[in-house]
Amino acid sequence: MTDTLSRRELARLAVAGLVATAARAAPPVRPGRVGVARLAPSPGHAPIGAAAAERAVAAALAAATGSADGRAAVAALFRPGDTVGIKVNCLGGPRLSPRPELVAALAALLAESGIPAHRIVVFERSSRELARAGFALRRDGGPFLCIGIDNDYDREPSTSGEIGSCFARLVSTTCTALVSFGVVKDHDLAGVSAGLKNLYGVIHNPNKYHDHNCDPYLADLANHPFVRGKLRLTLLDGVVAQCHGGPAYRPDETWPLGAVVAATDPVAADAWAWRVIDGERTRRGLPTLAEAKRPPRFLATAQRYGLGVGDPAAIVEVRA
């Protein structure tokens, strides 16, 4: 068995996606609004129970969208014909990646809204990173698929502003809707790695685009039609966050933020993360990200592109 989707599998998913495109209305976006649900870390890094994870994800979604509950929120954002790609950021390993239970909770809500399991695709750059973060790789069966991009990129590069990249075929071709499921952490070059930085994992050459605190590159990536036209939701596992030393996991730099975060505005989610990371850095006597010469400049650029609200002071945090 290979680690990339076969052409037949892709074709099956793509056809479903095309059907979905025709039936879809524009999903609602709440600029500048971030929904935050409380979820305390469990002692000794034990997994969080499925029920608690489901409650937190549903509450964050409801708060982010103003919907009555998580199910209504998902129903407003996705259609049964969608093929939904959930990009998870597993670079930080098992202690600093989205918890599989939270991802499973989102997948369950998608399934409840009528999206079949084979059209819910959890993915990361490589199968290896997924496995290391505790995800069970799955190309068939189960409540959702879970696969690495591995080497399955478009044959030709595609340009947006300063970036020129081959996109994962999952993103360019297969999926009709995307979710960026990141974490809340400091990043040595970007300043913040939350929802937008996670998307570097969908192109083949992110290492080329880290100069100048990833600006304008991250904004250019988010502005590419493959992303801008499909990204419906950002979710962040902020149960444990990291304020310094990222992107790798540094236990001494983490703190129990105890939050699951959702936003339909992808820029706002990152601006919120910037705010809480700077808050924790200040509490610890560390320089702010701007003082440390890594402000997430890409947020202002993304705001200028009309992708969302990038000013941390302008973010409305709605607590569940």
């Binding site: 670079l91 930080g92 290492n207 030393g245 990222g246 992107p247 540094r250």
Partner: peptide, 12 residues
């Protein structure tokens, strides 16, 4: 390139 743990330089 100044590179943090687990990251790569510009050449990849």
């Amino acid at each position: 390139c100044q590179v943090a743990d687990a990251e790569r330089g510009g050449c990849g």
